[in-house]
Amino acid sequence: MSDGDPILEARSLAVRYPDQRGPLGGVRSWRRAVDDVSFVVPRGQTLALVGESGCGKSSTGRAILGLQPQASGELLFRPAGADGGRDLLKLPPSGWKAVRRRIALVFQDSGSALNPRLKVWQSVAEPLQIHRLASGAGLRRRVDELLERVGLDPASGERYPDQFSGGQRQRIGIARALGTEPELVVCDEIVSALDVLVQRQVLELLSGLQRERGLSYLFICHDLAVVSGFAQRTAVMKGGRLAEQGPTAEMFSAPKQEYTRCLLDAVPLI
């Protein structure tokens, strides 16, 4: 399987939420957060999912991780070595453990997602233990490698999350995600809260990991300037639907939709 084959393909994905409930708690009406969304994440590349708050981009990301029970359509995941794709929306609960090893999630405030009472190395070790990938001295060695790979001193693993800056905590989140050797990483607004210089460094880290390990990213982000120069492809969402998608540089030079143009014009450039 080569670069560019889709590792993930969404076909007419829809996600709905209960909108109004009846007196006995039954759902009276539904609200569609995601409606008829189709896209492809090419293997070894990045698809950016951009749009404003409430456009459905995070609901889409959650559906991929099986966190969105009311999702319909198809979500075909094709890990290396598997014949054909597996539809994540039809996966039985017992099938998720194997898939979750291959799809990792990093989100905006990974810092607050870390258990504050665990030393950082213990947090990074957790997924490795859950999937029985390492134990004993091998476990610690693996954690040290991961911390080092994301640019942190392995000795700092002895410290607690609150002793790290926002950028460093995001690196810890990435180290934790990398442990199970995922093929697809869903990144939900992971650089939005960071200063520009730290943002650049985290993006460079992600690009480096992509080149080195052939990682694929679904990169959810509201900031078009971040996406530019980072994601090979971009899909713009508005009101739960796809407004436009295509190669990033091409779309940003000649947006087909008025809405994309409007988003681009709003970016404060120097």
Binding site: V196, L197, Q199, R200, D223, L224, A225, V226, S228, G229, P247, T248, A249, E250, F252, S253, L264, V267, P268, L269, I270
Partner: peptide
């Protein structure tokens, strides 16, 4: 912006949002 006097300002300018277009 035209003539940043300090290297750090140049660094910030390099990291500032830009839209790369083909």
């Amino acid at each position: 912006l035209r003539q940043p006097a300090h290297p750090y300002t140049r660094e910030l300018m390099a990291a500032a949002p830009r839209l790369e277009r083909s």
